[in-house]
Every structure is written in C-alpha cells, then in structure tokens.
Write a protein that binds this DNA or RNA. Structure first.
Lengths: 253, 253
DNA sequence: CCGTTTTGCTGATCTATATCAGTGGGATGC
DNA sequence: GCATCCCACTGATATAGATCAGCAAAACGG
C-alpha cells in the first residue's frame, strides 16, 4: 500500500503566527506589526501530558501555540472530563483565562509543544495603543466561541457518527488554514480516548463508530493519520458547514 | 398556599444596562460614559417568537437587551434545534454576529422584549476611541464564552437531573446579579420545550426530571416560577460552581 | 361562550450509548 | 528477552433517555 503524502508544501509555521492570523482579519500597519513583535518575549516548551494551565489558576499570562497540539478541558468532581477544544499552531492558549483573570479550565499539551508567552500587561498595552488589534483579538475570541457553540450543537443534537465525522472535518478545515492538511487528510496525534472526551462519548463507542465510518467508505483514522475516503460524502453525512470557521471577511479595512 | 414574593426590591433595569454591566469591570470615566451614551440611538421592541436575527444573516447591528428574555439557537438540517443560551436584561444580543460579520445563529425573543440597537460602525468607533471599553467588551464576550463552555460540559458529561439543576442555578445566579432573583427563586418565562432544547433532552424527559427534583425537595418549577426548596442541596447535587459567572475581579484599575 | 391550541404531565416501549470484561499487537523499559 | 504498558478493538449486558401515544387543564381566539 502506498503511503500518502499529506503535505504538498511545508507546514506554514510562521515565526509570528499571531501576526499571520490577525493579518487575515485586519491589514496591519508597520506600527501595529511592531507592537505585535514586542509580544514575542519568551519562547517556552512544554511536554505532552503536563498541564500548562490548571483550572482555578489566576493567570498573568497566556500563550500563542507555535508547534504541536494542545487541548483545553474541564474536570468534573467525579473525575470525568470534557475536552472543550483542541488547539493547533497559531491558536491562543488561555486568552479567556487572562481576560477573566482566573482560568475556568485546564490546558494540556497533547504532543510536546512550543509556545510564546504573552503577559497580561503587554496584551492590555497592545489594546490601549492599537485599538484595531484589540478588535482583531475580539474577532479571534469570537471565532473560538463560534467553534465551542458548534461543539455544543454537536453534542446536544447530533448522533455519535455525525458528531465524529463533523469533528474530523472541522479539524481538517482548521489544519488546512495553516497548511497542515487538505481534503485528502492530515496527520493527527489524537488517540481514541481524547476524541471520546472531546465529543462526549465513551472510548469504546468512538472505536465502534470509527469502524462504521471506515466501513462506509467515508473517513479512515489509523496510525495517526486521518484520511478522507470520500470527502464530499462525509461533509453531506455530517451536515458540515464551514462558514463558522471563515477567515475571509475582514470587518476593518 | 401563600404566593411567595421574589423581589425584595424592584428589578434593576438601568436605562443604560451596558454601562452598569461594564462598570462592574472597569471604572468608567465621564468621557467613556459619554461615548457609551451615544450608543443608545434607537430603542426597539420585538414580539415573542419573532426572530430578531436569522442564521446566515449579515449583520450591521447588535442589540442590548433592556427588558424581557431572549434565546440564541442554531437549527440543524433535520429541523432539530439547540438553544445555545438565554439572554436576560443587560446582555448583548448578536455581538458575535457583528464581529464575525455574519450570524452563525438565530435569536428569538422568548417574551416581548425591548432592546437598544447598536450599529457595527458605532461599536468599532467606541473601540477606537476608548480602548478600555474595547477590553471591557472583550471581557463580556469571554464571560459569555465561559457560559457556553459550562453548557458544553453539562451536555457532554452531566446526567439529566444534574444538568437541569445546574441550568436553573445558573439562571438564578445571573438573574440575582441584575436584581431579578435570589436564592429563594425567580420568575421564569420558559416552558419545558425551551428548556429541553437548551439542555439537549426531550421535553418529556425534562418533565420527568423536574418532577424528580421537586419530589426530592430541591427545586420546584411551576406556574412560571422557580423556587429553591433547598438551595444548598441543589448546589451540591448539581456540582455548581459560580466562579465562571463572577463579575468581581476587575482586570483594569 | 365554545372550540382550538398550548402546556404540563404520564405510561409503555424502544434504542443509542455506557459499562464491564476481556483479547492482541506494538512500543518501551530493564 | 521478558515483562509492562498503552492503545485499538470486540462481545455481552445494562441503562438513560428518546419516542410514541395519549389525557387534562389552562390560555386563547373568534
């Protein structure tokens, strides 16, 4: 069997992924780029499975993910956990924690990750000096909220198979935006337990449903790779609408 | 049976609920209050059951709820709907729609409502002139997101009874913040179908669970009133943590 | 004022998903 | 080279909640 190559080009891990991300929203002046530049004070590395942020922690800093995958989750008193979202390169980690001053969730690297640390003070300074960037960050936060809302709808109203298909499609769309995937598929470091915790199912059931999706010729998730055997059929099956991930509609000139 | 009176004082329906809300977060200067004042251009009324905002609509304006209740929801292709959240006086309606330029959800008044219309342009103008207000609005959005996340956890991991109890407690906490409820209870215009759509259950099951909660002496929901027969026990049962609704931790001096 | 609609409520049955209890393979450590 | 652990995978059984079908009382519309 031929090993499919998923990256036509090298993954776009910009040295300043936030600039790239916000640049999709506002056209940044050199002054604004300058302000952003100063945010990149400290590069740090975290190991897979060791939390960066703990539920209840009072945060002074948030992070911008440079490489690797992370997840944000909440623990219940009975030990169950709900993964709220996965983060991929270019995403904020813990932005909400900084704004609300206390973290309502924990963040765990799924793989080893590299991040840039951004201090709360510097972020507020950016807002004060460059209101357009403040609006851009609000846009980022809104987009994240839109994703959480979509997850809510999935867990609340979609069946297990539709939910998993939708989940894999959303990851595909997000990874494609940063050059780490295509409609053919993508490399995915998640295991079935992580997926189960994210979509509110048991790992056993995730396994069964993944088999069904594979047998119905829609998606195959195996050996760390997600392959779409029939992308369009999967989209139709999952009732997947990309619009909530759209980055192509700048509000500011 | 004695009709319990729930309001020790008149509900605080500030004529400028946004100023009140944001004032809990930042101390507003008179200049900033002035800018806010200019947002209140147009007062409008919408009737119960007639959507203000439709999924897919490209929005030029959002609203601040002055009186009445509304809900934001998403429709699935098969006609099911998931209510994402309910809005009470002082809340933004459709802020995300304006920032993302297109609405990913619909908004329907649950009762007749009064709102102030805020144009996108004016909102952006506020951000540009008063960055502290931009930060404050980001804080508002983050708080909303924290609530959605909490709903996600509920639907994903909590049993039906815990979920409903949690839901009723969250509404209580939010209403108390605007003077429309207390630990004794509150007036609640929702019916069991709306609750079902919000927490991802069937209306039939909502009814059964409400009966259980009543019979176990925790909460009673009847005739448009929610009464906590034993508030502390309900909190313990639902594993309810108020912290994510906290307004008492200003980030800016 | 009476018919219609809405809402709360209930029993009976069905089904999606959880839970329990395992197997086997591949990596990792000693 | 063997023991250990993690992860994918499976069958059998249990259960939470959905669905179906219906009643009664309150609200509403003409």
């Amino acid at each position: 069997m031929v090993r499919v190559v998923y990256f036509e080009k090298e993954p776009i891990i910009d040295t300043r992924p936030l600039a790239r991300k916000l640049g999709a929203f506002v056209t940044l002046s050199t002054a604004e780029l300058d302000v952003l530049e100063r945010l990149y004070k400290r590069k740090r590395t975290f190991l897979a499975g060791h939390d960066l942020v703990h539920q209840g922690q009072e945060d002074q800093a948030c992070y911008i993910l440079l490489s690797g995958w992370a997840c944000s989750y909440k623990l219940l008193h009975d030990g169950q956990r709900q993964i709220v979202d996965f983060q991929i390169p270019g995403d904020f980690l813990g932005l909400r924690s900084v704004v609300l001053h206390v973290s309502d969730h924990s963040i765990e690297p799924v793989t080893d990750i590299e991040v840039t640390e951004v201090y709360a003070f510097d972020l507020l300074d950016v807002f004060a000096k460059t209101p357009r960037l403040a609006t851009a960050v609000l846009w980022t936060a809104s987009r994240d909220e839109a994703m959480v809302v979509e997850h809510l709808v999935g867990i609340g109203r979609r069946g297990a198979a539709e939910r998993i298909a939708h989940f894999l499609l959303e990851l595909c769309a997000r990874l494609t935006l940063v050059g780490m995937g295509s409609k053919a598929g993508y490399a995915c470091p998640l295991n079935q337990y992580l997926i189960a915790d994210a979509i509110g199912l048991s790992a056993v059931h995730v396994n069964r449903v993944l088999r069904q999706l594979r047998e119905h010729g829609m998606v195959t998730f195996r050996n760390g790779y997600v392959t779409f055997d029939n992308y369009d059929r999967t989209v139709a099956f999952a009732d997947f609408e990309v619009s909530y991930l759209d980055q192509s509609m700048p509000l500011l000139k």
